[in-house]
Structure formats: C-alpha cells, structure tokens
Computed example of a mutant assay.
Amino acid sequence: MKLTHILASAGILLSVFADASANDANNILQQVRDRNDGKDYMSTVTLKTLSDDSLLNQRQFYMLQKDIDQDEVMVLAIKAPADVRDISFLMRSFDEGTAQEDEQWMYLPAFRKVRRISATDKRGAFMGSEYSYYDLDKLRVTDFDSKIVKSESVNDVETHVIERTPKSQDVINKSGYYKLVTWVDKDRKLILKQQYFDAKGILFKQLDVDKVDKIQGFWTITASTMTNFIENKKSTFLFHETLYNQGIEDAIFRKSKLKRGIKDSDVAELIKISELE
C-alpha cells in the first residue's frame, strides 16, 4: 500500500474517532442538562466572597426554580444585607432546539425598574462575586465544540473530562471564555469541576463542587466554590433548606412579579404545605 493511501486511511480513522468523541461528549453534556431535578426546587442560599481568607461580602437570598412547558425558569430574591435587599433576578432557559438566547432580568428597587441583562453584560460579576451572570445560566451544549479527552477521578468519583471550545465569537463575547475543561460525574451526571481559560490559554478561574447531598431522591450540589486565580479571590455558594416538588405557582416566575420579590412568608407557606403532605 502506498504511503499516501496509509496516511489517507489514518486521517479517515482520526476523523471518525474525533466525530465519535464529539458525539459522546455532547450526549454526556445533554444528560447533564436534562438531568432529572424535579418539577420545581427551592433553597435558601448564602454567597460569600473572600480575598486571602478575609470576607469581602456576604449575600443571602432565596432561589426558586421550576420547569414550565419546555423552559426552565429561576427567581433569585436577595434578602440580606440591607443595602442589596429586595434586588431580584429572573432567569429563563429555553429549549436549545428553539435557538433562543436565554434571558435574564434584574429588578433594582432604588430605580424601581426591571431591566434586561444583555448577552454581553452576562460577563459581569454576579452580586460582586467571582461567579458571572453567564455562570448562572443553564449549561448550553450547542454553543461549544466538545470532546472527551480522558477519564479522571475527582475526590474518588470517576469523571469524564471534556474539553469545550466556543463555536463562535458571539459565545466568547457573552461568556468571556475561550476554552472550558469540564469534569462530569459518570454516574450522577453532575459537573464536579470546571476550568476557564482566556484568549492566551491561561487558566484564570476554576469551579469546584465542595459537597453533594441526596435530597428527596435527587443528587444535589449543596456547596461550590469559584476561584479567581488572577484576582486571588474566591466565592462560595452554600445551599440550605433545599426542597423539591413544592408545587410552586407559575405566577411567581413572571417578570411582572419581580418588583414584589420572594418574601419570607412565601417560603414559610411552601414549607408548611410540604409538611402537611
């Protein structure tokens, strides 16, 4: 066989393997996106940001989430400290098949206005933390070219390690990321670790899942940390009083309800109903 034929055959095989890796990676990521997390979800959240272990700020808020039709909607309502109390957010993740851009809205009580967070604004820091608004969006499979690069253990849990590169400049513009490396729990289909790289290929940020608990039969991330290596800062999400399938009304997730926010009484009533069932 001629060398050119051997090289051509090798090229075809490499192409087949590359396509297979991409398909496998996309299937795994789709399972992460579609993982069963109940009809609705609620949690009380503490968000801490530190620099050299010194506390810079701390936020407390309610997080409510629900599947409505083919979309996933989430409301975040800040309850402390006083200077940011009653700021609230609405996030809607559309079925990727519709090719619609996910939406984020924010209510600022000082201005008594609800404004949309544009795609490019999603690179901004969420409430002064190391998490960006983009980081809060639901995982999008089709925005990236993905491939499995290896298997690796994370805290004694076997994971797929998937390398992801943006498909377009638009994705880079809204995310600020030029490459992601993602560690996916093989069994539970949870992202346990993720690294973020800039235009020069420098690792500048890393997400680590610190704790996973099983709540009402659902594997649930209850603590995670985002570390910014450039700024030498880190932010930690801590989730408390997490409950699933509480029968949260659709009306809570309307944009028109953002000004009212989520009150302590709303959460207390949902917990009361849960206890009665």
Rank of each mutant, 00 (worst) to 15 (best):
K179E: 15
L3F: 15
E152V: 10
D266L: 00
G217V: 03
S235D: 08
V171T: 11
K233V: 05
I252Q: 09
G11K: 05
G201K: 01
L13C: 06
L55N: 09
N173D: 12
E152C: 00
K174V: 03
M74V: 13
Q206F: 03
N155T: 13
Q216T: 04
V181M: 10
L139G: 05
D121H: 14
P109W: 01
N27D: 15
D208N: 10
K263Q: 10
L139D: 06
S54V: 15
V157H: 00
E158D: 13
V184G: 10
A119M: 07
L108F: 09
R33C: 06
Q195G: 04
N26I: 06
Q246K: 10
L108Y: 03
A20R: 15
R164F: 02
I78K: 02
L139M: 08
F197S: 00
D145R: 12
R254A: 15
S88Y: 00
T159K: 00
V161W: 01
S235Q: 02
I12D: 04
L180G: 07
D210F: 00
K233R: 10
S118K: 06
D86F: 06
S15K: 04
K193P: 00
N173R: 15
I215A: 01
I117P: 01
L56C: 11
H160P: 05
V157R: 09
A22R: 14
L90F: 02
I221V: 12
L108S: 07
Y134D: 14
K79C: 03
D24G: 14
N27R: 15
A251G: 12
T165H: 09
D170M: 12
Q169E: 13
D83Y: 10
F218N: 07
M63A: 11
K263V: 05
M91T: 11
F229R: 02
D102T: 06
D34W: 11
T227M: 08
T98E: 12
K193G: 00
V149M: 04
E277D: 12
R35H: 05
V32I: 03
V212Q: 03
A77E: 05
V75Y: 01
Q70G: 13
N27E: 14
Q206I: 07
L139Y: 01
E249M: 09
T227P: 01
T46S: 11
Q195W: 06
M74N: 08
L190E: 08
D40F: 05
D137I: 08
Q65T: 14
N155S: 14
S132W: 10
Q246V: 01
G261E: 00
V212I: 08
K189L: 07
